[in-house]
Design a protein around this nucleic acid. Sequence first.
DNA 1: AGTTTGATTGGCT
DNA 2: GCCAATCAAACTC
Length: 205
Amino acid sequence: MAGLAEVLARPSLEVAPALLGATLRHRTPEGEVAVRLTEVEAYAGADDPGSHAYRGVTRRNEVMFGPPGRLYVYFTYGMHHCCNVVVGTEGTASAVLLRAGEVVEGVELARSRRPGSSDRDLARGPARLCKVLAIDGRHNGAELSSGDLTLTPEDPVPAEGVATGPRVGLRDAADHPWRFWLRDDPTVSTYRPAAPLRRRRTPPA
DNA sequence: AGTTTGATTGGCT
DNA sequence: GCCAATCAAACTC
């Protein structure tokens, strides 16, 4: 199995499928939870209209422009965190969104962080994955494999075990098949096309 | 400076 | 299937 830095140094479209089956582990004082990645999405940087990096550096996305091997965590919908692994070479702002996984260690702790969830759904979705791993804004910019967070790559999954399709929830650049998942894995999230424009909440006059 | 939207989720019809 | 929650970033004056 290749080392982490070696795996992450490649373009996001190559790194994304290579991360399927890898394990992301977070140690906290309460204990440890590990998730085996089953679904990811590639984001190609400044040229990718679907990427947060598309419009250049901002305070939110600056971590994406830094060196690979760090976590890019963003806050969305006023309540959720989602996390990416920064990949490629410094300055390319490419990243891989971790969309879903299977909890393979610390199941009880994971359950306590998402009460009421079935085990299958514990990390089935990008915000759920962050929740069971207790990843939030404090981990934005955190280096992997040098502290509480560890990302352990696995040997590549055979090509026939990997499925690809359009990225989820994007209005722009949704047509590229840059989402990768383990075929037939029950913890892969259900595909939802981009949310149609929400109806105005402003009441009529 | 005010408005709209979002790499989502959970709850209800 | 539809919709609200809830806030920061992006977009429009």
